[in-house]
Design a protein around this nucleic acid. Structure first.
Lengths: 117, 117
DNA sequence: TCAACGAATGAACATTTATTCATATGTTCA
DNA sequence: TGAACATATGAATAAATGTTCATTCGTTGA
């Protein structure tokens, strides 16, 4: 028998079992994509401003003190992640949070960082 | 009175009120930093492998099919975000999740992406 | 109809980030 | 002690990302 043994903590068959039980790679990829969207201060601030109200692009830009273009670009990213939604009214686009998950994810993250040693 | 009026949805005073109620910028920055760590498929997969057990670096590398060096680099990032912790035993370093938040954040994210239209 | 305005978009640039390769560190055991 | 091994780390490279600037699109109202 020409079996290759590894001398690590876990047996080869066990490693394979762990591989099997992992969620499929596409799911994990989507998950990473979602968190990537949360992983930017500008987008976090935008979501934060939208916590209790809808706002148009110009007002968001004022609140977070950034240019209209930058805000608009980030809003597109937030939109495609289904984190914010738009309502158009005349010349303006009003954005609001799309989903309760946003607040929940936000709060969980806060818990983690405030509990840090 | 030389007050500049804006003709957007919300009055200037209201905008300032919203600015005031925003969490301070350092908190939001840390929050973004935390989610940035979740925002990478390799790190997500590592955390996932560690969901129910501790593993040494070599085994993690086997499970997620990446090089030892890449895994080690990512573990350092996870460690400094307090998401995983190490226990050293002889030649090996055993990593495990540091915190229940990891699982909670993970599951919330999964909920969000599976509910998408 | 056309000027003014709010928002969206594309291209360019600078910065950040993940991976790889090579090497260093630290531990075990022969 | 020194060879073998597990892990960590530094430098280099390639790829991804955020912001800015310039421009376009779409709507309003004079």
């Amino acid at each position: 028998m020409n079996m290759v043994l590894n001398n690590n903590s876990v047996e080869k068959t066990m490693l394979n079992a762990i591989k099997q039980e992992m969620p499929d790679i596409n799911t994990l990829f989507s998950l990473a994509e979602l968190y990537k969207v949360f992983g930017d201060t500008t987008r976090i601030r935008i979501m934060c401003a939208l916590f209790n109200r809808e706002l148009c692009v110009f007002d968001i830009a004022e609140i977070i003190e950034m240019g209209q273009s930058a805000v608009s670009h980030q809003l597109r990213i937030l939109r495609s992640a289904h984190l914010v939604k738009v309502r158009k009214d005349g010349k303006q686009s009003y954005y609001s949070l799309d989903d309760d998950h946003v607040k929940e994810i936000f709060h969980l993250g806060l818990e983690h960082i405030t509990e840090e040693k």
